[in-house]
């Protein structure tokens, strides 16, 4: 089972974990991405996330499907936020449930690493003296 969401609303971490819990799964791995207060020593005030919505949802589905094909995992949840987020807020939650922990760890790591490479979502960092699209330039 797969649950994909791209939303402007705050992510509900306990609800995400509850969704992947199931009697046949003995291991749940959760990755929570949070907004850090600095980049290379520069204080970050806030982030803005923009998505190419329909393609991002398709790519997120694709990653979840790949994870389920590569590892014996029963449930995959992938939620991402868009809009303005303050320091400490949560832009991404990934939760994976499997019978045994190794598959859950591996699949969860694969999902966040692949998301960062392929899903059309962009993050802009706001500093006191300017703003920058992350990763845009070499």
């Amino acid at each position: 089972m797969v649950d994909i969401k791209l939303t402007e609303e705050p992510l509900d971490i306990p609800a995400c974990v509850a969704w992947v819990m199931s009697p046949e799964c003995g291991g749940i791995d959760v990755f929570i991405g949070t907004v850090r207060n600095a980049t290379k020593g520069r204080a970050v005030l806030r982030l803005e996330f923009e998505a190419y919505r329909q393609m991002a949802l398709k790519e997120m589905q694709k990653i979840a499907k790949q994870a389920m094909e590569k590892w014996p995992v029963q449930k995959v949840l992938l939620h991402h936020r868009t809009g303005t987020l303050q320091v400490g807020e949560v832009p991404v939650v990934i939760a994976v449930a499997a019978a045994h922990r190794a598959a859950a760890f591996d699949a969860c790591r694969y999902i966040i690493d692949t998301l960062k490479q392929t899903v059309p979502i962009w993050k802009k960092e706001f500093f006191e003296d300017g703003e920058v699209w992350v990763a845009a330039h070499p």
């Binding site: 393609m55 991402h80 832009p91 899903v119």
Partner: peptide
């Protein structure tokens, strides 16, 4: 991207395609 999927350089385009520029992504 063409019609919500990454396109290869040789792919032909058609007028009705939904085409998008995808700069380096930075989600997560």
């Amino acid at each position: 991207a063409v019609n919500d999927a990454y396109a290869a350089d040789g792919d032909a385009l058609q007028q009705q395609d939904e085409v998008a520029i995808i700069p380096p992504v930075s989600g997560g």
